[in-house]
C-alpha cells in the first residue's frame, strides 16, 4: 500500500511537470499568442478590430494595453491556468470552432480503444511467443526470432505505409483510411461498429506487429535466464508437469520485467500511434494533433498533449498496480 501511495505521489509529480511544461513552452517561444493569432486571422482573410484583439488577449490572458486584461505575474497566470484546467476549461479550438474538451471527447475514445486493445493483443501474443521460444530453445520458432528485429526497428508509420500499400492500394482487401464508412451513423448501432472495426483492422495490425517483437524478444531473453534457475530445476525434480513449471514457475517470474517494461513501452506506443494515425487518417488524437499543428491551433495541440500525457500516466499507474500484485518483493522496496 505504501508503495502504491509512493507511486501515486510520483505520478502526481509527473502530471505537475507536464502541466508546467505545457504552460511554459508558449511563454518561452518568441512572440506572444495574440500576435500569432492575429497573423493567422489576417492570413485567413479575417478583419482585425480592437474587440478581436481584446478577445484573444482575454482568452490567452496576454497583457495588451487598454484591453482590461491586467498585467499579471507569471505565477498568477499559472494559477489561473490550473484553475481553468480544474474546471475542464482547456480553451477554444480555432480550427474546429468547438471547445477543446469537446474535440478531445470526440477523438480520445478512438485512440484509447485502438491503443488499449492492440497493446493487450501484442503483449499477450508476444509474451506467449517468447515463452514458447525460450522453452523450445533452438526450435524453428526460436531461431526465427531475429527476423522480428525488422518489425522492432521499423517506425510504426512506415510499417503503416507498407501495409497500407499492400492491403488497400494493391490488393484492396480493406477500406482505405478514416475510422468508419461515410454511410454509417456514429452510435451504438451494428453498421457503425462493424464499419469502425473494419477500418481499425489495419491500424491495429500495424501496432500489434510493430510492438509484439519487443515483447517476444524481451520475454524469451528473461525466460532463458529463468529456465536455468535452480528453482525451475527443483520443480522438475519434484515431478511437476511441464505446464505447471512453465506457467507458475518460469513464466510467472520471467514476465515481471515485461510488465515493468509496459511503462516505457506505452510512451513509445503512443508516440508511434500519433504518426501512424496520420497515415491512416484515423480519427484519433494523433491525427487531430497533426491537423491542429498544421492549422496553428495551439490550444487544441496543448490540450491534446495534456490529455495524452494523462492517459499515459494513468496506464502506467495501472501497470504498477498489476506489478505489485504479481511481485510481492516490490511492496517492500522504495518507490522509483
Amino acid at each position: 500500500m505504501k508503495y502504491i501511495l509512493q507511486r501515486l505521489g510520483f505520478y502526481i509529480a509527473a502530471a505537475f511537470v507536464a502541466l508546467v511544461i505545457n504552460f511554459a513552452i508558449p511563454h518561452l517561444m518568441p512572440g506572444n499568442p495574440v500576435e500569432a493569432a492575429l497573423v493567422k486571422l489576417t492570413q485567413g482573410g479575417g478583419t482585425v478590430t480592437p474587440q478581436t484583439i481584446c478577445a484573444i488577449a482575454k482568452q490567452t490572458s496576454t497583457y495588451i494595453p487598454h484591453c482590461g486584461v491586467q498585467k499579471v505575474s507569471i505565477m498568477s497566470q499559472f494559477w489561473h491556468y490550473v484553475v481553468n484546467l480544474a474546471h475542464g476549461n482547456l480553451g477554444y479550438s480555432t480550427s474546429k470552432n468547438l471547445t477543446v474538451d469537446a474535440v478531445i471527447v470526440q477523438v480520445m475514445p478512438w485512440t484509447l480503444l485502438l491503443v488499449g486493445f492492440s497493446t493487450l493483443i501484442a503483449f499477450v501474443l508476444g509474451t506467449v511467443i517468447g515463452i514458447i521460444a525460450a522453452w523450445r530453445r533452438g526450435s524453428m520458432l526460436d531461431s526465427s526470432l531475429p527476423v522480428l528485429s525488422f518489425f522492432q526497428g521499423i517506425p510504426y508509420f512506415i510499417l503503416a505505409l507498407l501495409l497500407q500499400y499492400f492491403f488497400t492500394v494493391k490488393w484492396q482487401f480493406l477500406p482505405i483510411g478514416q475510422g468508419e464508412s461515410s454511410n454509417v451513423v456514429q452510435g451504438w448501432n451494428w453498421p457503425f461498429i462493424a464499419s469502425a472495426l473494419e477500418h481499425s483492422i489495419l491500424p491495429a495490425v500495424t501496432l500489434v506487429l510493430a510492438s509484439m517483437a519487443g515483447w517476444s524478444v524481451g520475454m524469451r531473453n528473461v525466460m532463458i535466464t529463468t529456465v536455468s534457475e535452480e528453482y525451475v530445476l527443483a520443480a522438475q525434480a519434484k515431478g511437476l508437469s511441464n505446464w505447471r513449471i512453465v506457467t507458475t514457475y518460469a513464466a510467472r517470474n520471467a514476465i515481471l520485467p515485461n510488465i515493468a517494461g509496459l511503462a516505457n513501452a506505452l510512451g513509445l506506443v503512443v508516440s508511434g500511434v500519433i504518426i501512424m494515425e496520420v497515415v491512416f487518417s484515423y480519427p484519433g488524437a494523433g491525427n487531430m494533433m497533426f491537423n491542429a499543428v498544421s492549422q496553428d491551433d495551439y490550444s487544441l495541440v496543448s490540450g491534446l498533449f495534456l490529455c495524452i500525457s494523462a492517459a499515459v500516466l494513468l496506464a502506467n499507474f495501472i501497470a504498477d498496480g498489476i506489478y505489485v500484485i504479481l511481485d510481492p518483493r516490490i511492496r517492500k522496496r522504495a518507490a522509483y
Partner: peptide
Amino acid sequence: ISLFTNIILIIPALPLLIVILGLLQ
C-alpha cells in the same frame, strides 16, 4: 535526479515534440 529522470521518461515525448516544433513553426 532520479525523480526528474523518471518524470522525463514517463511524459510521452513525441506529443511534446509536436507541441514544441509546432510552436517553432
